[in-house]
């Protein structure tokens, strides 16, 4: 059972199919097989968080999952955050508050923040920092990112 197998899953709301070796990492499947290159590879051992996506609504490292494990799951990548050409409030806030420079960690930051704010819609700054410590950024000193999440939180609350 080491040979490739077919998997079906939903990615950014659309049904997708893949033919993958069991050892293929979910992040490689998303990038190479589905062509969704917005999800980035940064460390492949679960520390940097650049590859974070939502699996069934929850943030998970896609370098620490096999593609076959996502069979039947709903996966949301950064490409699925904006709807009908309108940026997600977190994307807007990152833009407004200079929450990114090179943009490489940004997808992981956005999706981690997205999941976090669902659990904790009115976080303190310390709680935001704690949640974001799941993703490493080397450009921003995190200042703009923290401000962006603070700014997005009430907008997401209001949108509920």
């Amino acid at each position: 059972m080491a040979g490739p197998r077919t998997i079906h899953l939903t990615v950014n709301g659309a049904p997708r199919e893949g033919w993958v070796e069991p050892r293929k990492l979910l992040v490689d499947f998303i990038r190479e097989d589905l062509g969704l290159t917005g999800t980035h590879v940064g460390c492949e051992h679960g520390i940097c968080g650049a590859c974070t996506v939502l699996v069934n609504g929850e943030a998970a490292r896609s370098c620490l999952m096999l593609a076959v494990q996502a069979a039947g799951a709903e996966v949301l990548t950064v490409e699925g955050l904006a709807r009908d050409g309108t940026l997600h409030p977190l994307q807007e806030a990152f833009w407004e508050h200079h929450g990114l420079q090179c943009g490489f960690c940004t997808p992981g930051m956005l999706l981690t923040a997205c999941d976090f704010l669902k659990d904790n819609p009115s976080p303190t700054e310390a709680e935001i920092r704690e949640a974001l410590s799941a993703v490493l950024c080397r450009c921003t000193g995190y200042q703009g990112i923290i401000k962006a999440v603070q700014a997005a939180a009430p907008k997401l609350r209001d949108a509920r």
Binding site: H40, T77, V78
Partner: peptide
């Protein structure tokens, strides 16, 4: 605000691995 950001925020930037 930066011109670069919309592409990077929507996962449509182009890095070498892409």
């Amino acid at each position: 605000k930066r011109v670069e950001d919309p592409r990077l925020l929507t996962g449509t930037g182009t890095f070498v691995d892409d």
